[in-house]
Amino acid sequence: MAKKAKKIDIRSDGREFDELREIKIQAGVLDQADGSARVDWGITMKRIAVSEKTYNKVESLREQFYIIPRGKGGKKYLVDVPAKLLDKIGDEFGDYEVVGEHFKGNVAIVAVHGPREPIPRHVADPYRAVLRFRYTMAPFSVPERKRPAPGRREIEISKVSREALQGVVFANEYPMTAIDIFAELLSADAGTRVTAITAASVALADAGIPMKDLVAAVAVGRAYGHLVADLTKFEEDAPDAVDFPMAVVPRTEEITLAQMDGRIAKKDLDELVELGIKKAKEISALQRQALKEKYQRVVENEQ
């Protein structure tokens, strides 16, 4: 059961409620893979130095905002605050000084190998290529060390991600082969499966694999009484949180991945689906731009 949560009118990281985090996509980042992509998907955190008095007040702000106290540094106390939140509630921190800036979010690198000889050979299908997806998270991608062995969660995400992409690949053009997708998460802050799927479809296109469309994925949901797009880890842990990762074929608006945590009214769910499709289309534009930039760069370098 969803517990009661205060409705708060500023989003915990200062974004608009339907605003995505900053997304940077690069195509063709690995030399040895047939196709590859890197996606950096997160927010900018500012590290600020505040007085001891303000630092003690920070504890109460942490209930509603994505703020991380970082202890004493020199004479001042350090706090990490999302850049967009700092613009909105900067007054709360009194006389602060910005001492640093860093990225907080998901980083996924995806390599696509193939179509290639399927190993073991007995998995080969004489009618189509077999698609394989391996999702892994680096031990250092989360605050507590993650055990590197693939567990229940990794196996599940690999399966649903593979199925999210399977429908768009023209696999029948490559019988008796395998297309291997390796998604490695170097940094994680909620929404890693959608980051991996978004990167994987760019990597598949970069490998020259025929597809109906580029699948774009995004998580939508509810946190602190609002329907929001692209939840952070902080929002995912909200008392009333609903987390709904979805993958969309943007041109036809088909949904190829839908999972959900939490309880939600039908009316709100419909609204979330609509929001997700709208946001997926924004991501799709970024994916296409990333693929085209790879070739644009060549033109600029050589002429």
Binding site: V168, P210, M211, L214, L291, K292
Partner: peptide, 8 residues
């Protein structure tokens, strides 16, 4: 012109 999969 340069196209990506899914472009009309």
């Amino acid at each position: 012109w340069l196209v990506t999969p899914g472009e009309v």
